[in-house]
């Protein structure tokens, strides 16, 4: 079971990285969205898989009667999902604002922080 999920995780990573290596911000954003899922699945799978038994203790019991899915990766992923979403929203707004200010969504043309033809620093004290 984990083997198949591993291959799926590999595909998720490959697709997200291919999208991120695009020149256009919107595809990079899509890549980042996929990357979040890829990482979440990675954590989920590495905590081992268990079909259909959620880590919930039935009423009246002190511990689950039988084996359940691993709760630890679930707790980690739950917060990660929300964080990666708010992060994605921030990046989207950032990309949009960059587009507004710079008039381009091509990252090769975005050279404000590192201009291509910058002079060497002056030699003085």
């Amino acid at each position: 079971m984990e083997g198949v999920l591993s291959i799926l995780v590999g595909i998720f990573f490959a697709v997200s990285i291919y999208l991120m290596m695009s020149r256009y911000t919107i595809r990079i954003m899509l890549g980042i969205a996929v990357l979040g899922n890829a990482v979440n699945l990675l954590i989920f799978t590495s905590g081992r898989l268990m079909r259909e038994v959620p880590p919930i203790i039935p009423v009246g019991e002190l511990v689950p009667p039988g084996p359940t899915a691993n709760p630890l990766p679930q707790a980690l992923i739950l917060t990660a999902i929300v964080i990666s979403f708010s992060f994605l929203a921030f990046l989207l707004v950032l990309a949009y604002r960059a587009y507004q200010e710079l008039g381009t969504d091509d990252i090769v043309e975005m050279r404000v922080a590192e201009p291509a033809d910058e002079d060497l620093p002056p030699v003085s004290y």
Binding site: V82, F85, S86, A89, F90, L92, V93, Y96
Partner: peptide, 16 residues
């Protein structure tokens, strides 16, 4: 926190 933050972001984007 989740409600407030995400609503804030969403409303901002809807306004734009």
């Amino acid at each position: 926190v989740v409600m407030g933050s995400l609503t804030s972001i969403a409303l901002k984007l809807e306004e734009e």
